[in-house]
Design a protein around this nucleic acid. Structure first.
Lengths: 346, 346
DNA sequence: GTGAAAGCGCTAACAT
DNA sequence: ATGTTAGCGCTTTCAC
């Protein structure tokens, strides 16, 4: 049934040349007579040859594969792990990250292996995977900024690039967003609209990005004479946005402007606002963050701070590729600027 | 800087035994003196040895890697490809699929490589990838049932398992859901509630599952004396659900019950209904399909037909594993039964 | 420009 | 129970 797959040897015999010559043709190395090239190419076609990657990797020490790891800080039991995967992808944010990464990798024939590292054991597996040379490097997207993985990777001197700056310095390149600037944009917009009683739904405060967005929002308001800003902490999920908005409304019924740290929570906030009889944006203006797909699909459409996720993800992949190629040796950080997208909610 | 990674040879020398013995210990093969085992294990610890997978794969002809391919039918230009990835993950459905697959693969040390095959070129890359032995088999999730990939895979005799039955028979195992039964459940529920003017928002009709759900819904209604059912075709996206519901309402203002072919569209339907002054479920009852995360996060919470996606995905992975192990040789199909989950929308 | 030959690090058959 | 040895299929000097 399954005949042995054709090898270089087979092609060589078929074409009447040596293995070395076939290898040269396959790898597009010059110094091969055009006629012979054609000869070899035809032999390849006839035999249906496909180079065995294990054999190639064994000598080149490259796999053309990168680990795409979604990493939590937690010590989630392994049981809750497929729930972790589902939860992660419930935020359109990750779909965009994947899209950006794949967009960069594919034209270069690099392939992503999906890994989840939400437990100590899973993190160890990631390290082992890389040490075994199954992937050339790692692209790490952490859900918490105190994620231990980046440090482990750096200690093991394994090539890796991060999405978002780690909470404590690690000698690894990363891409990030100027979160403070984004929050500043939101605050200015709300103020310009005439809102006087502002509040915010922050992201989980163990995430650096959440802290930055909160700090940026507060700073801007403070500079405009609003020293106190009610805050409700959310978890970047729709549910938590709902709970946070309800809480805020109970404590401060007069709120007329809200900045939510992501679109999912902004959507939740809008739902609660409407249920409680507030019109958005007439009674309460809402600004989200990310500019994810829900920003345009939810009603009212969200005014939000755009984060160029695909571009950031692609850049992250490029950084790793450059490190692997050896064309970039120094640790690098690339920080993107957000921009305000005005729609209906504010 | 980067010293050569330790090899079996190094460990053997360190432990004072032969390569073969170290290999046996590493692979957990019996017939090794416990004392020597311990000796070797310590040597491994000291050297920080990690077996080179390329070398192992070269001889075992196994990579412990499977391709997880999300496949469209289209001939989307490669440019639109990271958009494809983002769009795919915009439906929580795929997050659940990934969760189920990873849940099965990980305990078995199998790893998924993410691939998107939405163009002829991309499909060819998937085939090449497998032919090169970079993955042992493929797990294929198609967004359209006339996806050409399954047939290509079967023709090339590459091991693969599908999520959902292909539109034309292909000698490949698959898992699927009894879509008709699911639609039947929805129809019965709506009828039992007292709805008299039913309509449905179908999925894209080039997807077999959509056709089945539609047919099942119609059949059941027909049996209950409702020969005509207004249909609006959607595309499984929130947007399309919104458009479809608006359309339905224009054509049949008296509609009092709607069956949407997935939760995302059901959510869109609820939005439109509310905007047009209909209460859900009092004026119009809505039943979704999937029981995805949005079913519980959207307002009102969705009554929906549950599809055990994680379980189906895990089963799909298991089928592939069994085929690869050689313990299952015949092509197999596993069809799951849906169940109705009653919440608030109907 | 082309071929011969030496490995890359591992497993597995065969000896012992 | 352990060691010896022959490859797995490829890239890459090094001769010619």
């Amino acid at each position: 049934m399954s005949r042995r797959a054709p090898t270089l040897e087979d092609v060589a015999r078929e074409a009447g040349v040596s293995r070395a010559t076939v290898s040269r043709v396959v790898n597009g190395i010059r110094n091969v007579d055009p006629e012979i090239q054609e000869l070899v190419r035809r032999a390849i076609g006839r035999t249906g040859y496909a180079p065995n990657r294990a054999a190639r990797s064994l000598v080149t020490r490259r796999t053309e594969t990168v680990a795409l790891v979604v990493s939590g800080a937690g010590d989630t039991s392994d049981a809750g792990q497929n729930a972790f995967a589902a939860r992660v992808f419930a935020d359109p944010f990750f779909g965009r990250v994947v899209g950006g990464i794949v967009g960069f990798l594919r034209p270069r024939s690099l392939h992503p292996v999906l890994m989840f590292a939400e437990s100590a054991e899973a993190r160890e597996e990631v390290l082992t995977y890389l040490r075994q040379g199954r992937a050339d490097g790692a692209l790490v997207v952490s859900t918490h900024s105190d994620d231990p993985l980046p440090a482990l990777l750096a200690d093991a001197r394994l090539p890796a690039v991060l999405f978002a700056r780690p909470s404590r310095p690690v000698p690894l390149s990363y891409v990030d967003l100027a979160h403070r600037d984004g929050a500043h944009l939101a605050a200015e917009h709300l103020l310009a609209r005439g809102c006087r009683q502002l509040a915010t739904i922050s992201g989980p405060l163990d995430v650096a990005a959440s802290q930055e967005r909160l700090a940026g929002f507060r700073d801007t308001l403070a500079r405009h004479g609003h020293p106190y800003v009610p805050v409700a902490e959310g978890g970047f999920t729709l549910d938590s946005g709902i709970a946070a908005m309800a809480d805020l409304l109970d404590r401060h019924p007069g709120t007329d402007g809200v900045f939510a740290a992501n679109d999912l929570m902004a959507q939740g906030a809008c739902q609660v606002l409407r249920e409680r009889g507030r019109r958005v944006p007439e009674d309460v203006a809402v600004v989200g963050f990310d500019d994810s797909s829900i920003a345009v699909t939810c009603r009212p459409r969200l005014t939000t701070v755009r984060q160029p996720v695909e571009e950031m993800a692609a850049r992250m992949a490029r950084l790793l590729d450059e490190h692997l190629q050896g064309v970039r040796t120094e640790v690098t950080s690339v920080v993107f600027e957000p921009e305000l997208v005005v729609r209906e909610s504010a």
